[in-house]
């Protein structure tokens, strides 16, 4: 069996505040095979984004965060790595695409400078000319026809869709093993979002990159992912191949989530009480090792 790109087991996260200890993730498990596109779906506050930030090693820098369980990336337990070693993985073996491309790029540096910075993560000795060449190659891959102009531009001079493509190009430039996409393009309008997602899908397939795709948008997930994990209040309540989960949603929350997708024919938002009992009964239990799906 091949080593999974990412294997999360019984991950728990809590924050220590002055008043109390609040647990946010109650033991989630998730695994992504090389080249696999996996979606983590849930409403805001369900724990999707913090999961991504633990994988990146960013939350570990917070003093108030208490993390347990294991996150194994390409066979290496992140917990055993030093902060420095975790930082080395970021931008080289794992990268991230953000929600709002325009505000995720630094407003006072040219795209070229920022692209160069990203490329230097993998090859610190890379000079500006080599960076320019490599960036041009990547920008062409994301269907940007005039890479030179984009290279010289500031983010505010480009459209949101262009910036999103630049982000995707940056994210894939160092040939990472894992791409984390945190609600990519949610800030863009729907057609542009669909376009860039299609592009991203083609590219990760081509580069054989694993993707952890975080979203609340089921329509988008269906288009993009092979497998889906549904997360609700810090627990994974259902998981399975995209097709079967969408065909036969087993869990009450998944069904509610699907019913919440707006349809052109009307109908839509189901009436959900504050604490429906069904939602808190996961179909998959991740707390114990044996129970791993």
């Amino acid at each position: 069996m091949t080593v999974p790109t990412l294997d999360i087991r019984d991950l728990r996260l809590g924050f220590k505040t002055y008043e109390a200890y609040i647990e946010v993730l109650h033991g989630i498990s998730l695994s992504i095979a090389p080249g696999e596109r996996v979606a983590l779906v849930g409403e805001s506050g369900s724990g999707k984004s913090v999961t991504a930030r633990i994988v990146l090693g960013l939350l570990q820098l917070l003093r108030s965060a208490r993390i347990s369980g294991s996150v194994v990336f390409e066979g290496r337990d992140l917990d055993r790595l030093s902060a420095r070693e975790r930082r080395r993985l970021r931008g080289t073996r794992m990268t991230m695409v953000f929600q709002d491309p325009t505000s995720s790029l630094n407003p006072v540096y040219r795209i070229g400078t920022q692209f160069h910075e990203v490329l230097k993560r993998a090859d610190p000795a890379m000079n500006e000319r080599a960076a320019r060449e490599r960036a041009a190659q990547m920008l062409l891959e994301v269907s940007i026809d005039d890479p030179d102009r984009v290279f010289e531009s500031y983010p505010f001079q480009l459209s949101g869709g262009m910036n999103q493509r630049v982000m995707i190009a940056m994210a894939l430039a160092n040939e990472p093993a894992l791409l984390i996409a945190d609600e990519p393009g949610t800030a863009l309008d729907v057609t542009v979002q669909a376009q860039t997602l299609k592009l991203m899908r083609e590219l990760v397939e081509h580069h054989h990159t694993s993707v952890l795709f975080i979203s609340h948008n089921l329509g988008v997930v269906r288009e993009f992912a092979d497998r889906v994990y549904v997360i609700y209040k810090g627990r994974i309540v259902e998981q399975g191949p995209c097709a079967s989960v969408f065909e036969r949603p087993g869990h009450a929350y998944t069904r509610a989530l699907m019913a919440a997708v707006p349809r052109i024919t009307g109908g839509g938002l189901p009436d959900i009480g504050d604490e429906p009992r069904d939602f808190s009964q996961p179909l998959v239990v991740h707390e114990s090792r044996g129970g791993h799906a």
Binding site: L56, L58, R90, G91, T92, M96, S104
Partner: peptide, 23 residues
């Protein structure tokens, strides 16, 4: 977000402080 982006690309803290957050 662009500072978080720099962090998630592993740009060293020192460089983030002196360049990407400072300017």
């Amino acid at each position: 977000p662009y500072v978080e982006m720099a962090r998630s690309y592993g740009v060293p803290d020192r460089r983030i402080a002196n360049r990407y957050a400072f300017k």
